[in-house]
Design a binder for these strands. Structure first.
Ligand code: SF4
Ligand code: SF4
Lengths: 143, 143
DNA sequence: TCAAAAACAGATTAAATTGTCTGATTAAAA
DNA sequence: TTTTAATCAGACAATTTAATCTGTTTTTGA
């Protein structure tokens, strides 16, 4: 059951939050991330490779290599990860699945849903990763 | 790309809204619903059979048969359809996909997301189908 | 009575998503 | 210099979801 984001996106968000909670610049191998978040290693590795292409994370090959954030946490928002993985189409789509949403043909829940979409976007766009550090540590456990 | 609900659920919601927009008690064959909503006939038929089992719609077999609402539109809420098809688990799940959500281990967006979930639930639970008639007609076209 | 049109049941296929594997390349450390 | 541990690329497998098909039963209306 999908809430909003694909598994790929959920794992990507979790992984990036995890990295942001560590000392800045420190290198995390995908094995560590997978173990801490209890998600498949190869999968998270693939996802982080994607995010590397998107310029959100950086990677270091070879022994004692791994992934790290490409920018300062204060420069990364959750919505950036969502945009890179799932895209931003959800924020223009209808909950009821009606095609061609337009203001002159509003669906039955248009007003409410439009507002919720905006709030959700705002939630993901207004704060940067550095704001989440403590809560991430509390949620995931010791880092 | 799933917004929140599965295709099954989206189609179910649309079909029920469609039926509620017609004169009460009138019979809609799945072919008509599929044509008007531009969704696969066999699929919507399956979904309405499910909703029949759930007691939300009723069916009439044989020639000039079809589906109809089992109760008065003022007795049906959108959340009832969601509950019957996708279930209500989304309203207890985390957007970030973290397991075991609990108040003492809130995830980084706990407060915001909790509020959005409640608002979404409210949107689907507070009004009954009869309130949506006009808007549905405007959205789907002449009925 | 009988042909047509519908729901219904259940099997099957198709597509998308999720997860795994293999091997190549790279770089650090022993 | 060689071993080890990592990313990376791309194929592959498994699972879930979406959609279709086949046939049966039921009912109406010609
Ligand atoms: S106008 Fe209606 S159909 Fe379009 S997104 Fe808003 S709620 Fe959905
Ligand atoms: S507490 Fe955190 S993890 Fe749990 S549902 Fe709320 S936001 Fe998600």
């Amino acid at each position: 059951m999908t809430v909003i984001f694909s598994k790929k996106c959920e794992y990507g968000l979790q992984a990036v939050l995890y990295m942001a909670a560590k000392e800045s610049g420190c290198v995390c191998p995908s094995e560590e991330i997978a173990r801490k978040l209890k998600i498949p290693k190869e999968f998270v590795s693939k996802i982080l490779q994607n995010l590397t292409d998107s310029g959100i994370v950086d990677s270091k090959k070879g022994k004692s290599g791994g992934f790290m954030l490409a920018k300062d946490p204060s420069k990364i928002r959750l919505i950036d990860i969502v945009a890179a993985i799932d895209g931003l189409d959800i924020f223009n789509s209808c909950v009821l699945g009606f095609p061609s949403c337009s203001p002159d043909k509003p669906c039955p829940v248009h007003h409410n849903w439009g507002e919720l979409r905006s709030k959700a976007y705002e939630m993901l766009a207004s704060e940067t990763l550095d704001k989440f550090k403590e809560k991430t540590i509390n949620k995931i456990g010791k880092i």
